[in-house]
Write a protein that binds this DNA or RNA. Structure first.
Lengths: 143, 143
DNA sequence: GGCAATTAAATTGCGTGCAATTGAAGTGGC
DNA sequence: GCCACTTCAATTGCACGCAATTTAATTGCC
């Protein structure tokens, strides 16, 4: 028996399974807002700062245009944002929320708190876990 | 400014980004084996125990037949495993490695060690991080 | 034994992720 | 000013994930 290849010992699987469980935990909270989980992340970024380009958004979320372009088109079709090609540089597309997109932020206020409840006993260690994951991510991306 | 909705404070985003970075870190190691990352997870399970049904495999990986059926067909087409409907219960499909599938385990031996190197300074805390993630996952799934 | 309820895979449909390519727009060197 | 090079978004193609439905097989109840 080879210990090194055991599924339950793999950090990667713990990460993979936890990440999917997290997405599923968000789903019932986001469905009433008409958002998928990745769409919610895009909205989080734009609620912080509008007018970002697709590239800037992609750097923030570590997603490329192959993923973002269709996702942003769906958000535009749903009336949450506008995609506007810059006149200074026609290669770039800036992202602006619509009034409805901005209004949605109010409804989203309850989401983080609802999740915190779900963490239960783990709640206190959330900050440390988050920081460890950001550090791990940086290590993996730099290598 | 609403702190609760800030992207970098969200555990969910740290998890999501780290999980994708992890998958990308595995990709160059798995490509020579002709495996995607989810396919590698399936092989890890079957290297531990052959003859599992699709349902049992799905419970182990927290994946359903919608994901597994096409993935397993690809592994079968690649000659790594055989899918065999049980005679005792024709609803179920058992999974058996081919000789080639079994041989692949030897080539995979180096993968976990290569990843450990990538973790660099974080390496010592890997066990604790993994356990915290398993606990979080259980909390999210039970809730 | 007959039939409703349950179970296991497969299928369908849709939304990501991401590598690779394309096309259009800007930039830099000469 | 021209042209090679770079950059940005979009597109293409493929492999997941997962909800929802379908199909086939088994079980449980009477």
């Amino acid at each position: 028996m080879n210990d090194a290849l055991q599924l339950d010992r793999q950090l990667c699987f713990a990460l993979y399974a936890a990440s999917r469980a997290m997405t599923q935990a968000y789903q019932p909270l986001l469905a009433p807002l008409g958002l998928t989980y990745p769409q919610y992340l895009v909205m989080l970024v734009l609620w912080e700062q509008e007018g970002l380009t697709v590239k800037q958004l992609g750097e923030r979320l570590a997603l490329d245009s192959g993923t973002l372009t269709p996702l942003l088109k769906r958000l535009e079709a749903a009336g949450r944002l506008r995609r506007q090609r810059l006149t200074e540089d026609e290669r770039q597309v800036a992202l602006w929320l619509t009034d409805e997109g901005r209004r949605l932020q109010a409804d989203a206020q309850t989401v983080p708190a609802a999740l915190l409840c779900r963490y239960g006993g783990e709640a206190e260690q959330i900050g440390a876990l988050r920081d460890a994951l950001h550090a791990l991510r940086r290590t993996l991306q730099d290598g």
